[in-house]
């Protein structure tokens, strides 16, 4: 297999079908360690499906996805859980549980490491909610606790390098300030720990703020995969969303 050392994630000719419907067709791309890839596309273009495929949800897709030199089929459930974290829209927690215990579920099979949990919560500015009932937090606050869960899952205060972090629309419920905080957190961790990050978003400005490269999806096919300035052209975005789009100065604060 042709894998350069810096490439952490390789996707080769990935297709996903649900019955007769074609959800993803012939998608190929790489993500290097320390690189942030933004996933853009209209509703139904296949962003979440691609996220789920990268998260290993489709058994038939696993042989087309290579992480750190080995196809997903070769990774054990426990080994991959120590190197790959996923944040997607999640159902409400059915029972009363404090945020600290929620974060501890990032590593369910080992005794909770209180220091690592505190560290992960602090990194996401969520330390103060540690003993709060998770269900009473707002959507945005819950999201930050979910991010802390992923940081704890991949190491907490002793972070592993070269991990994969998948985020499906991490900013969907956030105000502008929170959005900025979460995006810069993601970018900072990707660079500092040499993690490969793939995140999907509906806002090209978010991609522009932190992504190194962008993958534009249309009807389950890759429209463009390129460095961010090359990918986010008026022509590409117009084709991606199916209506004319012009670029102006954005509202995202630096």
């Amino acid at each position: 297999m042709n894998v350069t050392s810096s490439q952490l994630l390789n996707v080769g000719a990935l297709s996903v079908h649900a019955g007769a419907a074609r959800l993803l067709h012939d998608i190929s791309f790489d993500v290097a360690a320390g690189e942030v890839l933004a996933l853009l596309g209209a509703n139904g273009a296949g962003k979440s499906t691609l996220m789920m495929a990268l998260a290993g949800e489709f058994a038939s897709a696993n042989q087309h996805i290579t992480f750190d030199g080995h196809p997903l089929t070769a990774w054990s459930r426990h080994a991959i859980a120590q190197r790959r974290a996923v944040n997607a829209s999640e159902p409400p927690v059915p029972f009363t549980m404090n945020a600290g215990d929620y974060v501890a579920l990032g590593r369910p099979f080992v005794a909770p490491d209180d220091r690592a949990i505190a560290h992960a919560l602090t990194e996401c500015h969520a330390r103060e909610w540690r003993t709060r009932d998770y269900a009473t937090l707002s959507m945005g606050e819950q999201l930050r606790v979910q991010l802390a869960r992923s940081l704890y899952q991949l190491g907490g205060d002793d972070p592993r390098e070269r991990c994969l972090w998948l985020l499906d629309e991490p900013c969907a419920h956030l105000d502008m300030a929170q959005r900025h905080f979460v995006l810069t957190l993601i970018a900072r961790i990707a660079k500092a720990r040499r993690w490969a990050v793939v995140f999907s978003t509906h806002d090209p400005l978010e991609a522009q703020l932190i992504a190194d490269r962008a993958l534009l999806l249309r009807h389950g096919e890759a429209l463009s995969i390129a460095p961010i300035d090359i990918a986010l052209t008026e022509a590409n975005l117009s084709a991606c969303y199916g209506r004319p789009i012009t670029r102006r100065a954005g509202f995202v604060s630096e």
């Binding site: 789920m52 998260a55 290993g56 949800e57 459930r77 426990h78 991959i80 859980a81 120590q82 790959r84 974290a85 996923v86 997607a88 999640e90 579920l105 990032g106 590593r107 369910p108 099979f109 899952q153």
Partner: peptide, 8 residues
């Protein structure tokens, strides 16, 4: 789904 991603 999240349970699967943490190794269950």
């Amino acid at each position: 789904r999240a349970a699967r991603t943490v190794g269950v």
